[in-house]
Design a protein around this nucleic acid. Sequence first.
DNA 1: GCTTGACATGCAACCGGTTGCATGAAAGTC
DNA 2: GACTTTCATGCAACCGGTTGCATGTCAAGC
Lengths: 342, 342
Amino acid sequence: MISEAKNREFSDIMIKRAKGVTISQVADAAGVARSSVSRAFTRPDMLLPETVERIMKVAEALGYVPNYTARALSTGRHGNIGLIVPDIANPFFPPLIQAAQLEADRSDFCIFLGNTEENPKQEDKLVGRFAGQVEGLVLASSRLSDERIRAHAGQMPLILINRDIDGIPRVLIDSGSGVRQAVEHLAKLGHRKIVYISGPSNSWSNKQRRTAIRSAAAGFEVTVETVPAVTASYNSGRTAVGAILATGATAAVAFDDLTAQGVLAGLAEKNVSVPGAFSLVGCDDVLGAVTYPALTSVSNRSTEAGRVAVSLLLEMMQSRAVRDVRYVLETHLVVRQSTGHS
Amino acid sequence: MISEAKNREFSDIMIKRAKGVTISQVADAAGVARSSVSRAFTRPDMLLPETVERIMKVAEALGYVPNYTARALSTGRHGNIGLIVPDIANPFFPPLIQAAQLEADRSDFCIFLGNTEENPKQEDKLVGRFAGQVEGLVLASSRLSDERIRAHAGQMPLILINRDIDGIPRVLIDSGSGVRQAVEHLAKLGHRKIVYISGPSNSWSNKQRRTAIRSAAAGFEVTVETVPAVTASYNSGRTAVGAILATGATAAVAFDDLTAQGVLAGLAEKNVSVPGAFSLVGCDDVLGAVTYPALTSVSNRSTEAGRVAVSLLLEMMQSRAVRDVRYVLETHLVVRQSTGHS
DNA sequence: GCTTGACATGCAACCGGTTGCATGAAAGTC
DNA sequence: GACTTTCATGCAACCGGTTGCATGTCAAGC
């Protein structure tokens, strides 16, 4: 199971790592002041072109690389932004992270990633830990209290994704629009009683979806019952199946695709055919065509959310002002094979 | 689609962010030297308990938070490690990232995440960008050349995941063992000709899997043909189906589950039943029970790989020595429903 | 030919901590 | 009581850059 290289006697070698070349060494070698070397890298227009060239040549030869930490100390700018998510392993987040990173990269910013395991304490700790090292922060689906978020927003530029707090710039994926379409779709298929399989109780999206379902159902003369699934996961969906069937409903909307996937598995175990005997709709559309039957789901716009959040953050950092932005991304229903007539 | 808060007239507010409290302010307020404040936080045993307590009280009252950037500049330790992956959206990586983060967190380290989009240039750029800000680096499935990796390893502690370079500590997921089991499994089911659907040509795992299949096949009197899928993705698997069927093989092993999933879709489109008319094995077991039919796959140990890599890195950073470690994680075949008699 | 201005470069302070060494007071030794 | 030891604290240099201001040079202006 574990194997290491044979030649253990040669295996411990002291590191002879090149202790980074500094600006002073370049300055000496090039016969200029440290400030000139600094300027050659940051404001070459202040120097004679030939001076810049000479410095660059020497720097190159010596293998000089600017030290970002030192630069950050004097300028206050580190070129990093933090991104905190509750669960990287949830397929909703990787595309968001990817998009955020891409957008950050366009402005030469690096992303500090934090994973909170859905734990507010861990989230608080990470924010504190990031504080000195990033210029701004994006909190995706934060599990923190409004007060804590406000407190952190007072310390540094902060953008929220899927969390709606007045006065703090936020990007919201409005799954309400898609969820309403889902209810309408189910109603048209003849379903009269549906279940909402809820997600984490401190999730803004969960509240939003539950509310949207209730209000939409009222309009279509459909009754709704809520069955909790505790966390957003395959297993909690699977174990919720008993409770779901006990309600007598003929269709369900799950908090997210992961939960829906668990429900699909649970239904299959109980030999309830989908969509023959039961219709199921997911949310976030992260599994879509992959499940069997292919899951009808509410589209997600996590990629755009990540991109927009970072772009708003960068703008905010640059203007050094905070605008009360509320950027809403609408969603829609993607019909596949997991829904049918009642 | 886009909505912003109504009260635009109030929306631009200059930031009045608390400009961080410094050690000097705490020192003045507590009537001690800056060094004492510093020690109160880093080596309280050097000070009288009552002095520490007084300093802490003042610091608390002022809302002092140590500046990690400044600390890093003088100590050379920033408490960050970098993790670079080729594609966050590939389900192989999130569990790895999560495990790495968890392990780092246990020692109070933060993770800098980099996504290279499978692009060596981007990877090189990110490494450079991280250089000043992290104490060590983990490169997962690096797409860089051996030379570049060696160069970077000379600059800072570096651990590789799924890349086998002599002299550089590495954690390898040996899919060879699982792949051999897959070939044996297929041979026992009566398959005499199988296809290996290859992945990225610069991927170490790809080479390893291809080699393992060939050598295993020889032992079981099975012939192997290779069909390229260019990148590791759903689409490239799907488009490869024509070429796969053209070989006349009755079974295939795909570079990874994503590719296999695409192949499944492609086969379904062509009305080739799985496992009735064709058997398929994936790799990495990231989709497993989710596909239809449930995919037989080679287990992945990405979680352990992430954990072990970070733990080796931390050890290496502490000892300031580099050991030629080659940590191998074996895999095995997980049989599900996508394989059957020929 | 002297003044003025533009401009390239250098000087030195600063960012916010850390740390080796010096200092001085209290405690211990004979 | 003088002498050493111990130890809490302060001093000041340092980490590697950035930047406002001073300086010196050279060409243009009159």
